[in-house]
Write a protein that binds this DNA or RNA. Structure first.
Lengths: 189, 189
DNA sequence: GACTAAGCGGAACGCCGTTCCGTATATTTC
DNA sequence: GAAATATACGGAACGGCGTTCCGCTTAGTC
């Protein structure tokens, strides 16, 4: 019993809000004042909170497609790439690219303030299993040392992506690459 | 001409504030409301801002000793440890321990909001040269590959220390160790 | 067209950083 | 010791932001 379906204006507003949020996130980052988003969408503050009770809900809704795409790319890369480690590296690249192009998203991802919990949860629930699969394949192929947990790796990568735009001398990609190399099994037998 | 020396009560308040801030930082993190610190010190808000115009100034003042100690440990470790890479590893451990025991400090260090600039600046100005020296020694000893910049490494390590207390499954030390291993020169000639 | 429940807007509250200035006091001067 | 003055103090006040709440509006229904 799906109750009664939502009102038309509610659905319209939800879409408008998503579009407005996406636009504002680009220019002002994911920490932009809620008022700014509401104003851009031409709705009241109450409306934004009714549709997206927490900021995290809004962020998740805005980026869900891209996260899904990233998650789905995992298995694909695994089958289409000859070495599992190469697949892992490409997948991580995808993830880093995603984070790095969203102002403040990496920061928000790690924020421990309640309210961002949903964000944290969604990203990790969706992506950690994918990462784990890639990791396991690479371990089985004897390309990397076992013992690294996907959760930890994902959070580490996320952390490394913080603040990349504050200084041109800091490029998260180089450090992530270093991390991956640290993962590689020493070639001694 | 050192102008006239400060008033006695001003000096006393400065000390009181430092102690109060140190105590509050332990319990509420370095983001604790300024009011809380002022209250704890038993002074007005104006006083805290007069002595420490920005939050970063206060944080720097509170932790200056420890940062100095860490900076000075660099050269010492280098002479007292047989391998430069081992010295680097120990030094990094020191730095991680420092960051990990200060709630929210790692976050603050990376915050790009103006006002934390002084913090960023002080930490990096003081520690990057030390790290660079260790790095260079390890490169010269042919223990690690050249091409990594101390600035980038320090920021990466700082980033990895963010959020360590939000989940027991996340241990920055393991990832930092991975990073260091990624630095090591592959043992192929 | 009237009814009703779903949805809307934005005023209002609380928290926080930061500024500003009337008041209090340490220090110097006589 | 008292007056003079530079210094420092306290906390009210302002603005920005997140979040809640409720009287009003409107879409969907009969």
């Amino acid at each position: 019993m799906p109750a009664r379906s939502k009102r038309a204006d509610a659905l319209r507003n939800q879409q408008t809000l998503l579009a407005a949020a996406a636009a504002v996130f680009v220019t002002s980052g994911v920490d932009a004042p809620m008022r700014e988003i509401a104003a851009r969408a031409g709705v009241g503050l109450g409306t934004i909170y009714r549709h997206f009770p927490t900021r995290a809900d809004l962020i998740v809704a805005v980026y869900r497609h891209q996260v899904e795409a990233c998650a789905e790319a995992g298995p694909t890369l695994l089958t289409e790439t000859d070495s599992p480690f190469a697949a892992l590296r490409q997948w991580v690249d995808l993830f880093v690219d995603f984070l790095v192009t969203k102002h403040g998203l990496a920061n928000a991802l790690q924020s421990d303030s309640s309210g961002f919990e949903a964000l944290h949860t969604y990203f990790l629930d969706r992506l950690v299993p994918v990462c784990a699969q890639l990791l396991e394949a690479a371990v089985n192929a004897d390309e990397i040392r076992p013992g690294t947990h996907a959760y930890e790796l994902m959070r580490g990568i996320g952390n490394l992506c913080i603040g990349h735009d504050s200084d041109p001398r800091y490029d998260p990609r180089r450090l992530v690459e270093l991390l991956l190399q640290g993962l590689q099994r020493p070639q001694s037998p």
